[in-house]
């Protein structure tokens, strides 16, 4: 098992963000992490990336705690994490020096595929920033990608390019957890959908099984999370 979460709980002050989450992800799976704002999606991704330590429960990435699996989980935050004045090329240079998994050839290919402009992040549209950050994330070879709302608040064309890039870059050995509250366009990508509500997994099912029962992921989302 690539990733295992057991009874994971995390509180911010007195508000529970995760309230006993169990989750297993195998290599090659694309998991849609679905929930409304505040459901705990970002906390779950951060705990998995080793950026937050759970109060309770256990996270195992490749059999050990995430902090010991450095470079094995690539986390793409929702907000641009790089200085506004930096260009993607400068960040790529930095990453290439810090992460042995950074693949320059693949990065160049992704720049073209995602049409990333060569200018500082501050001078990009939101869609361009999202595409640049995805290129930087996917250029890092890793068994697990944690993508936090990569489709939120950006233009339709950028969303479609990102979806196409995710299919294009799909590898049988790497898993992806993609969080989103805009389920519609992304649902074709998922093997499995995990619905999170108030810090708990309320449904975890293969998406084709949901469709077999006559419901799209979008319809299930409305039903389960309403």
């Amino acid at each position: 098992m690539l990733l295992e979460l057991k009874e994971v709980a995390k509180r911010y002050l007195r508000t529970p963000a995760l309230d006993g989450v169990d989750l297993e992800v195998r290599g090659g799976e694309v998991v849609g992490l679905l929930g409304l704002n505040g459901a705990g999606k970002t906390t779950l991704l951060k705990v998995t990336a080793g950026l937050l330590v759970p109060d309770r429960g256990e996270v195992r990435l490749l059999g050990g705690p995430p902090r010991r699996a450095r470079g094995k989980a690539v986390y793409l935050p929702e907000q641009n994490p790089w200085p506004a004045g930096a260009r993607p090329a400068e960040v790529a240079h930095l990453l290439a020096g810090a992460d042995p998994g950074f693949d320059r050839g693949r990065y160049r290919e992704l720049l073209g595929f995602l049409e990333v402009p060569d200018r500082p992040f501050a001078q990009m549209s939101r869609g361009q920033r999202a595409r640049a950050n995805l290129a930087l994330a996917l250029a890092r070879r890793a068994p697990l990608y944690l993508l936090d709302e990569p489709l939120a608040g950006i233009d339709l064309i950028s969303r479609d390019r990102i979806l196409k890039a995710l299919v294009h870059e799909w590898r049988a050995d790497a898993a992806v957890i993609l969080s989103t509250h805009e389920v519609g366009e992304a649902e074709g990508l998922f093997d499995r959908a995990v619905f999170l509500k108030e810090g708990r997994v309320v449904l975890d099912a293969p998406v084709e099984d949901l469709r077999r029962r006559g419901k799209s992921v979008v319809e299930t989302f409305k039903e389960v999370l309403a």
Binding site: G28, V30, D160, L163, K164, V167, H168, W170, E185, G188, L189, F190, D191, E208
Partner: peptide
Amino acid sequence: ARALAEALRVNPNTVIR
């Protein structure tokens, strides 16, 4: 499978199935 998956924006596993 990959070309078709890209065109349809679906998971390549789905096309393989």
